[in-house]
Structure formats: C-alpha cells, structure tokens
Write a protein that binds this DNA or RNA. Structure first.
Lengths: 129, 129
DNA sequence: ATTAGTGTACTATCTTTCTATTACACTATA
DNA sequence: TATAGTGTAATAGAAAGATAGTACACTAAT
C-alpha cells in the first residue's frame, strides 16, 4: 500500500482500518486479518501494525484476544460514536483550512458543491478512480 | 505556536505561510519576517524555518535575497495558482475521506452545509474562536 | 570602514518512526 | 500432546525530523 510520507505509517493504518469499520466492511464482532497477514498485505513491518492496533485497542474499538485474533468491538454504539467523531473531524479540518484562506462560509458550500458536481460528472457511468 | 505532532513541523510552517499569502496577509512583493524572527515567534529552530522556506523558494512562491530578506513573489499569477491548488487539494481530501466512510455525494453536501450552519450560529455575534 | 541585520551552510546530537529479528504466550485442532 | 495459527514483547539499528551552536556571506546604513 502507498502511504503519505508526511504522516506516520502506523497512524495511516489506523485510519484505514477505522474507515473500513465505519464503512461497514468490518462489522461489529468481525475478526480482523491476522497481524502478520496485515503486515504482508500492507507491506509494512509487524511492529508497525502492532502500534496501530495498540491504539485502536486502547480506544476500545478493537478487542484483542491472545491466540485467537483481533476483533471489532461488538458494541455498535462505539462504532457509531467513532463515525461521528471522524466525520466531524474531517469537516472541521476543511472548514478551518478554507477559513484560513479567507474563504467565506457561503463560498465554502459553493466550492464543495462545485467539486462534487465535477466528480459526479466524471463518474456518471465510468469506472471509479 | 502549536503543531500537530503527526506532521513534520517544517511542513506545517510552510502551510501557515502559504495560507497567509493566499489570504492576502502577505501580498505579492511583501517582505517576510526575518528567518530568525520567524524562528522565535514560532518557537522553533532556525533550521526548521529554513527548510520550510527552502521548499517555498524551490516552488517559486518565495524569492530569497541574501542579506536583504525573503519576499513573496511579485508574480500574482503564481499566487493565484497556488490558491487554486490548495483549495482543490483540501476539497479532494474531504471528498476522499468521506467517500471512504461510504458517505454519498449528496450526504457530503448536506454534512458540510449542516456543519457550516452550526458554525455560523456560534459566531453570529460572538467573538471568533 | 564598521556595524547591524539579513540569508546560508555545516556539524553534532536527540527523538521518533520504522524495520529486522528473535522469542515467548495462548488457542484451537488434528 | 504436537502443531499451526494467533497475539505480545523486547532488542538493535536505520532513517527522518528537529535542535543547538557556530561560522560565513551579503546588504544597507552609519
């Protein structure tokens, strides 16, 4: 997998897995791929995967069972909460970024709408990027 | 200044300065604060500021004059181009992030609109955050 | 000519991240 | 009870980022 060299890899791995959980590709209670398997498929060291998992475990989103594997928490509330947190973080990020560029609230909505229009056109009946 | 410990400081400094240029706080041709001055006000080492400036110089946005100082390019086109690039990068970032969470185009617009509504309410006649 | 203010360069050291490697602990199953 | 599959721990080293400190080069003003 490709990583942004401006952000720690372990952190990007955490992001990827959280995204999969929130998108529903990993449902509550589901077993995650084995750590060594993840390391291979992400072409990354086992310890790096470990570090990502460590944080997800500490945050209560992943449950670790020695000898069995890592599982998404079966507490759907936690997942829903995580989803809200992430969405809000992402929105705040864009809002702050554009505000720093002196772009008004109204303009922000316009820019986002226009951007999505452009994307929609591109993907009307094409293959995704 | 406070930095996000997930992103290199030199890169965040670059972002801050670019934002100021685009927002018009630093107009084309303007002189930037002296490197040592920037280091103090950002509470960061001189070399770290240097590295940020190095990239901005390489990208043609900042002009360095030994013994005189660093200046924003007087080429307004470059600044405008930078602005478009940044806006597009920020929008793409949000779009990709929310798409990975399985949120539809329509929902994205709704979320952004709702977020900005909330912000607008907060700042109606209050001091900014 | 001197001096203050500027950018530039270089070396050494520290911290964080990532990797490599080895070893150990627990579970399930043949 | 072996064995394969899993998570966990720990050490050592490489690479990138950040710092501290020193020195040098150029400009403008006195």
């Amino acid at each position: 997998m490709e990583f942004d060299d401006k952000v720690p890899i372990y952190y990007q791995i955490k992001t990827v897995i959280y995204d999969q959980i929130i998108a529903g590709q990993l449902a509550p209670g589901d077993k995650l791929p084995a750590i060594r398997q993840l390391a291979v498929s992400l072409t990354v060291n086992v310890n790096t995967v470990q570090r990502a998992l460590r944080e997800m475990i500490d945050e209560g989103v992943v449950i670790s069972q020695r000898g069995r594997g890592n599982f998404v928490t079966s507490n759907a509330e936690i997942v829903e909460q995580l989803k809200q947190e992430l969405i809000d973080r992402y929105l705040k990020q864009l809002y702050d970024q554009l505000h720093r560029l002196n772009i008004s609230d109204e303009q922000i909505v316009n820019e986002v709408t226009a951007y999505i229009e452009r994307q929609g056109d591109l993907n009307d009946d094409n293959t995704e990027s």
